[in-house]
Nucleic acid binder design. Structure first.
Length: 568
DNA sequence: GCCGTTTTCGGCCCGACTGTTTTCAGTCG
């Protein structure tokens, strides 16, 4: 799949045009990029079938440029634009409040072309004197530059996991045993690379097969027991071949985390044993190794689910047989945030409902934007009521899925919602979320959010911290105070399952459930392909030690309705 | 540059917010 690369190129072209003050082309390229990125189908296949122009937003020139890129690895248009303005656009625009226009000025006036130049110029106080800049802008640059630097070092779980699973699928027939390891198996929100472990008697054949997969851009290492490849899109994949009798201990070893493993080895040592990737040994005698369960068992520990292996108390809990009974991936019965084309989603409600039924959901909530967020198609009351009539019709047609009619309202700067209560009280599910004024001081922000939670019509505080992984920092918030208010007012806090949000994150989930706060999983899907991300929300819940009782999506429908009926 | 026609040209989600100005441009969603 090279969709992402092409999307990146089109986005870069859009940035370049924006810098040159050219109208509309940026939007066209961005739209093309967006549609390619969430295609859910391999663009090379579409090219081979000569169907590129059937992709919405792709026309004559962009289709040609996709072909050009797939054939030659370059797009001349971008190369030319880069010669005119040789700046590292992507890392520079990762600094909040710095966009194409400002970058242009910085380059032309000060010769700034990368983050190092930018930092130097800011430190020397050269930026505040530029026209359109000022002291605050300069301070802001210095404050945000390290965040911008970290961007792009790791890959998002939600985008890597499907590809890793595909690779496993492709290899399965070639091997005796296969399993994902590493941070991907622990379902960490970002991963540095992909680790795959296999058992096979024909190691050379397996390695040849692996290094010749279609998706390989470069073979970095090709050995008998370990090979490393880099995929189109940049991520590296390690494949290791181990002996059958060591598979469990190797899986344990390569799953990590490092801290978890150090503790485990210490326990082994204390008991006169030695633990490594080849097995658990007493002198030279193998006590365990074939299965992970046996390794833990021989150390007098409960088997620890991979999501918990971060050395934050799970080993003590495993010792005392008191690991939490984690929510299971199939405990989640439905999705409590999604958007249709009634606001800014791409698919019709019918398409979203059908896909949700395919995923086995027994309930969903449409939570389209309302109110002042016009850019996201915010509906007025009349439109929203029309949507409700349509939902009632669908409900008659489908008796296997319950459809809540919800909405997503904006929390204004002062904590009020941007629609009035006569509107709010008609909704089955009210999400409240921040879409503006992200940079208030902590105290003011906390007050603002708590005010929204105290609104008696609000059921769920959605994407509570607003962070986007590697893109946008969290708002400044006293989360413990927010949790306290949420519990008091019976408001659930969302685990937004969209790959770049995962907000709340695992650490926050842990804190929330310790305060008995209920949590809600919503994909925030803006097209039907996004609906499958709900399991990422479950992964975050598991990493935060959540159980079935903590997650309202795991409630029975009647219990969930009860939870949502607080104002009636 | 793409789209969809009132079919080969004209329109393209736009409002809030911030920091810069002193009435507005750039950024963000």
């Amino acid at each position: 799949m090279r969709n992402k690369e092409i999307a990146r190129i089109f986005n870069e072209i859009a940035d370049m045009y924006e810098m040159q003050d050219i109208d509309f082309k940026p939007r066209a390229y961005r739209k093309a990029a967006q549609n390619i990125e969430s295609l859910g189908k391999d663009i090379e296949e579409i090219y081979e079938d000569d169907e590129l122009k059937n992709i919405p937003g792709i026309g004559e020139s962009t289709a040609e440029e996709i072909k050009e890129y797939l054939d030659t690895g370059k797009v001349q248009r971008l190369e030319k634009l880069k010669t005119d303005m040789p700046v590292d656009l992507r890392s520079l625009s990762a600094v909040e409040t710095i966009g194409p226009k400002k970058i242009k000025v910085l380059y032309q006036q000060l010769g700034v072309s990368n983050l190092d130049d930018l930092e130097q110029a800011a430190k020397q106080g050269k930026i505040q004197d530029l026209e359109g800049f000022g002291k605050k802008t300069e301070e802001n640059i210095l404050a945000n530059i390290s965040f911008a630097r970290e961007k792009g070092q790791r890959f998002l779980l939600g985008y890597v996991l499907p590809e890793a699973k595909e690779i496993i699928q492709e290899l399965t027939d070639q091997v005796d045993q296969i399993e994902l390891a590493g941070s991907l198996r622990r379902m960490k929100e970002t991963v540095g690379d992909v680790d795959i472990l296999v058992v096979s008697s024909e190691s050379e054949k397996v390695m040849d097969y692996f290094t010749n997969l279609d998706r390989v851009e470069q073979v970095i290492a090709h050995g008998k027991t370990k090979s490393t490849i880099r995929l189109y899109g940049g991520i590296q994949v390690d494949l290791r071949i181990v002996n059958k009798q060591s598979f469990g201990s190797a899986l344990q070893y390569f799953t990590g985390s490092k801290d978890h493993n150090v503790k485990l080895r210490k326990i082994a040592q204390k008991n006169g044993l030695k633990l490594n990737e080849y097995g658990l040994f007493e002198d030279d005698k193998r006590k365990a190794g074939e299965s992970e369960e046996k390794v833990y068992q021989k150390l007098d520990l409960e088997w620890v689910p991979p999501e918990l292996r971060e050395d934050i108390g799970e080993i003590d809990a495993a010792k005392q047989n008191s690991l939490p009974n984690l929510i299971q991936y199939d405990d989640v019965n439905g999705d409590l945030q999604m958007h249709s084309n009634w606001s800014d989603g791409s698919n019709t409600m019918k398409e979203m409902i059908e896909e949700s039924r395919n995923l086995g959901h027994s309930f969903i909530a449409f939570t389209d934007h309302v109110g002042t967020l016009k850019v996201a198609g915010g509906m007025d009351k009349k439109e929203w009521e029309k949507q409700g009539e349509k939902i009632a019709e669908f409900q008659k047609k489908f008796d296997d899925i319950h459809i809540f009619h919800g909405l997503e309202a904006n929390i204004k700067k002062n904590g009020d919602l941007d629609i009035d209560s006569s509107f709010l009280k008609e909704a089955d599910v009210v999400l409240a979320s921040v879409h503006s004024s992200f940079r208030l001081p902590k105290k003011e922000m906390t007050k603002r959010i708590i005010k929204a939670i105290e609104n008696k019509y609000v059921h769920i505080l959605s994407h509570p911290t607003g962070r986007k992984i590697q893109k946008k920092e969290a708002i400044n918030l006293d989360l413990d105070a927010v949790f306290k208010a949420a519990r008091k007012n019976d408001v659930a806090i969302e685990i937004n399952a969209y790959p770049e949000r995962l907000d709340l994150n695992d650490v926050h989930v842990h804190r929330a459930i310790n305060k008995n706060v209920k949590l809600s999983i919503g994909t925030d899907a803006h097209r039907k392909d996004h609906l499958r991300y709900y399991s990422l929300g479950t992964a975050v819940a598991r990493r935060g030690w959540a159980q079935k009782k903590d997650i309202i999506n795991a409630f029975s429908l009647s219990k969930l309705k009860n939870f949502l009926n607080k104002t009636q």
